[in-house]
Nucleic acid binder design. Structure first.
Lengths: 156, 156
DNA sequence: ACACGATAGACAACCTGGTTCACTATCTAG
DNA sequence: CTAGATAGTGAACCAGGTTGTCTATCGTGT
């Protein structure tokens, strides 16, 4: 006869679970030769994808301004994860592409996330985890990338 | 015979679910006379609790420095949600307490969160939601309040 | 052919919430 | 009664976000 938990526990647990996964990802990424990568960077590189993009497009994907996207790309460029080249077909545009180092980080991230998911499956059971994922999918918007982290948090 | 989803979907869905709940909370809070409250503030007020606390203690609870906690308290004070009074027993300390307005916001937050949880229960089924909560509880640390949002996100 | 609107990118100023370092005031224990 | 710990504050800085402005380039309509 357990009573229903207070409503505020759910969002907190969701956030904590997210945080636990991200922290573990970055601890492991650090061990695998990517100590300087930050939580944001992984998402941004995922959003850039293997084919490259532009600052404006990246901003659209992530739900932030082109200036914000540009700044992040700059930071990523400084630490060697992306490079920008002018688009010969439209010299206004600069194509942002992952470097081999960036590709490596992205591939490792994917592998580590799969591994973390497998650990959750081992702990909870694959069926329970699938149910959890299905439920979350049901309650969240389709577009995975509109994170606007962490801007929304301080937004007016 | 569905294949297992990519590992990176799980953290994203967790975050998105968190975000959806928080956004809905603040939309409703806005409608109920608290338009100026920001996502951070709700958590901080929860952490302050009905008995009050101090900046140092609050920092410890939230996992941020006392200076950061102090700044947040200042902001909350400016918009009338908390007040600070010197502790007569130790004049170094300043007790941070919720004002009646702050209490109102906290009570409404709790009610809205309960309501949001009820909506999830209606959508997913109470048993599925309980399973989800139980699974998250299993995979996250006990201390609900060590959020360090959003500092951890940009932390070195 | 060309002018004009739309688009890509960059720069500056500012905001929030975090950090570290340094300092004062007060408490407490030896 | 002094030495060390603790509470709070201020300053300088950082990351990542915003708006607003500016230039360069593209592409379309007359």
């Amino acid at each position: 006869m357990s009573s229903t938990p207070p409503g505020f526990e759910l969002p907190l647990r969701l956030f904590l679970a997210f945080r636990v996964l991200i922290d573990e990802l970055h601890a492991e990424l650090g061990r695998q030769g990517h100590p300087d990568i930050r939580p944001m960077h992984g998402f941004v590189m995922q959003a850039i994808g293997p084919d490259g993009t532009t600052a404006v497009d990246l901003g659209r994907t992530l739900g932030v301004t082109k200036q914000a996207a540009g700044k992040t790309v700059e930071a990523l460029e400084r630490i060697g994860y992306v490079e920008r080249t002018r688009d010969p077909a439209d010299t206004r545009r600069k194509i942002v592409r992952l470097t081999p180092y960036g590709m490596d980080a992205l591939a490792r991230s994917a592998a580590i996330f799969d591994d973390l998911r497998a650990r959750w499956a081992a702990e909870l059971g694959e069926d329970r985890l699938r149910a959890l994922e299905a439920d979350l999918r049901k309650m969240t918007p389709a577009n995975l990338w509109r994170l606007d982290i962490p801007g929304w948090f301080g937004a007016p």
